[in-house]
Design a binder for these strands. Structure first.
Lengths: 379, 379
DNA sequence: CTTGCTATTGAATCTGAAG
DNA sequence: ACTTCAGATTCAATAGCAA
């Protein structure tokens, strides 16, 4: 078994294309069984992102009744019972160790929980060398009230997003998140409704799973921290929200699940999920991934003549464009960035937005010329 | 010393009236020195509530500059430096052990932190036998942005509220909280602005303390979980927000603080604090903010599928919805507002009223979908 | 006195590819 | 593993000053 796993890992590193991935990884399938054992069958460093919704260890007391006398359907399943915090910690370390082995160097992991378990999970993540990137608050738009009036209404859950290590070059689709949030940076608190209505899966008229997560939550997680074609693993698959959203978003997925009844519901659900087509899947790209244009290219191709004057917005500084794309301001010379930084006495400067020109009677940053150049060069 | 402490504890249990309390407890005073040593001088089971704002162990890297080149004034104080997680844990266990000894059987403790430290604090609290009652999210109305676009904006801090044990008959003023929240149960997420403006204490023109907490936060904590005349201890007193609010609410307080400069500011501040009348309370506690709806939220939650077509009223322009909530019209992409403006050649555009969809056989502005979404999401 | 513009600032684990 | 350098990147609130 171990030899097989190693061979698979080699294959994956050697040629990570689609066919190879499908051959060495059981992609888009549910692995039936204990998640730790199932993870052991997968090769090292093969997973891009892990989403985990482990048991919360809720420690509920007796039955809970609403003020009208009706019974509250609490999470009382065996899988949520642990004899002690120590037992829960052992369980957590075991599945996280496998998760860590499976993650690629630049991969990241999400874990969701409540105050019952999330502090233990977070501390263990840190102890194991994961690097916390954010803690995210899912603020429930419609939480269950605190019927007895003994505490604050528990109206949120916490997600931890962590990279495999401090050095990981993790995926974060900043532009897509900013777009999704009406052109403001996406914050660490997310307002989303809980999973109910049509979305809530039923079996024989009752809820198929006690803690089904809303697809909107997974949608945001996956859009933010994976790319198309990435492999997402969910060790506690349940009714397959992760798989359904992954399929819609063009990501590959692997799920681990013990309970036959959940697997059955999940398979049916994912079967029915429709993948989005290419154009709908596209997201706003960050400038970082855009093709680079050297300032010199604008000079070469005549968008800006050598000898032209550029200046900062307040016209405190003026410089002359030289034939090689460098700038000169009195005795100082340098690149658009370097000279801008030098003149301001700043550690760095984005010359594209710092320097301006007069173009068609208007003052514009030279970045505007770059945009025009790019449009002209395309096709 | 130990004998004296025991005698004090006896006196306190025997006759816990005001005069005795003042004789055996250094009430309404700042204890100058290391918090663990200072706590050792106080008698067992003498404190009703502890509010602690310990160092967060931020582990910051190098300098950080804003996009405009200005410098971010980070927390670089020695008191926030620890050599490792293990060292931080040891420190945490030590001060929490004293805190636990000082707490009355039915007392409770609040600890505030960020993802850097709060998971460790929470796990240690549980290991020591404290019983977590809620984790509370302080959603900052005006957090510092993520200047480099590398993560989600860190827009909240976490508070843990725990009783001394599972059996504690802790104080929770349910009615007061409900009144404060417009007759709705107070939730576990609190929207409050950060401490700035007039409230932010200055010394020689610069902030007196790098991490001063807003009084509104302490106000809610104390109003919810203490009664008038209770003794509140703050082991990390800083500039004395806890003391100022305690005085205004008619609670007694004890603070521990090492730094002379903080003590000086705190003493002056508390001296000036006046008991506040009830009517002022309503204005200083901000109501729950109506969450704004981003167009992306409609996409995430399935009200509008990626790939759907939107168009202006006269159907001059058509665009396709993409996965991140951006729109695409031929070669152009952008947000609902930005693309609307671009296509019309207008300086700006309200995308909510400009773009329309077909919904239930009718053409409606997408704003109508937003209204439906809000109705569905409201409590 | 009001309105509008600009500058400042807040618990921050804050770049990445090429050489 | 190191350095170098192009160049990407910010939201809300408050204070101060000008009009």
């Amino acid at each position: 078994m171990v030899a097989l796993v190693k061979e698979k890992a080699r294959a994956l590193r050697a040629a990570p294309d689609k066919a190879v991935k499908a051959r060495v990884l059981p992609v888009n399938r549910i692995l039936r069984g204990d998640c730790i054992e199932m993870m052991r069958s997968l090769p090292d460093a093969s997973i891009d992102m892990i989403f985990a919704d482990p048991p919360y260890n809720l420690q509920l007391g007796g039955d809970l009744a609403r003020p009208d006398g009706s019974h509250v359907d609490a999470v009382t399943n065996d899988w949520d019972k642990f004899s002690s915090f120590a037992a829960y910690d052992t369980f957590t370390r075991e599945w996280l160790a496998e998760a860590r082995r499976l993650l690629k160097t630049d991969g990241s992991i999400w874990v969701i929980g409540s105050y019952h378990n999330i502090f233990r999970v977070g501390a263990i993540l840190q102890d194991m060398g994961f690097w916390i990137l954010n803690d995210i608050i899912w603020r429930k738009a419609n939480p269950m009230p605190n019927f007895k009036g003994t505490r604050f209404t528990n109206a949120h859950e916490t997600l931890i997003w962590a990279s495999k290590s401090e050095k990981s070059k993790y995926t974060f689709n900043y532009r897509a998140m900013k777009t999704l949030n009406d052109e403001l940076q996406m914050r660490s608190d997310w307002v989303l409704p809980i999973c109910n209505g049509q979305e809530r899966l039923k079996r024989n008229g009752t809820k198929a799973h006690p803690t089904q997560k809303p697809e909107a939550l997974l949608y945001r997680v996956m859009l933010a921290t994976t790319n198309k074609g990435d492999v997402v693993l969910d060790p506690f698959f349940g009714t397959g929200t992760t798989g359904a959203v992954a399929k819609r978003l063009g990501r590959d997925w692997i799920g681990c699940e013990r309970e036959d009844s959940y697997i059955e519901v999940a398979e049916e659900r994912i079967e029915m999920a429709l993948p989005l087509d290419e154009s709908a899947l596209a997201t706003m790209q960050s400038k970082r991934s855009a093709p680079k244009v050297a300032f010199g290219a604008l000079v070469e191709s005549g968008w800006l003549a050598p000898g032209a004057k550029v200046f900062d917005k307040k016209r405190r500084f003026t410089a002359t464009v030289r034939a090689d794309g460098s700038l000169q301001a009195e005795a100082e010379t340098g690149s658009i960035h370097g000279l801008g930084a030098k003149l301001q006495g700043a550690p760095s400067c984005n010359g594209w937005t710092f320097w301006h020109v007069e173009h068609e009677g208007e003052v514009k940053p030279i970045d505007a010329l770059r945009q025009l150049y790019l449009l002209a060069v395309e096709d």
